[in-house]
Amino acid sequence: MVELATDLTVREVAKAAETVLQRPVNVTPDTDIARDLAVDSLALMNIVMELEDRFDLSIPLDRLATVQTVGDLSELINTLRTKA
């Protein structure tokens, strides 16, 4: 179940990234956001804003300090969702 939720979230992260970056992206939970997707800090904040809307959720920026991979981001979202 947990794995399934993560898969779904990873897919939403990919969709949000595509919306912001306006190009197709290929992601797995291990994808390094800055290195593999060439996403700078501004683009990452925009992706997060997009994800907030997709999940109707607040993702405070200070929580991104520990996010490096798509998996980290998905986990953060899932944690915030279960708390909400």
């Binding site: 907030e52 607040s58 920026l61 929580r63």
Partner: peptide, 27 residues
């Protein structure tokens, strides 16, 4: 300043009061 403050930071879409409203509602 946001970093220095340690507060929970949320961004809203530029110059968009409806978007601000939505994000405040979420809080």
């Amino acid at each position: 300043a946001a970093k220095l403050s340690g507060a929970e930071v949320i961004r809203f879409r530029h110059n968009d009061p409806d978007d601000l409203h939505k994000r405040l509602r979420r809080l």
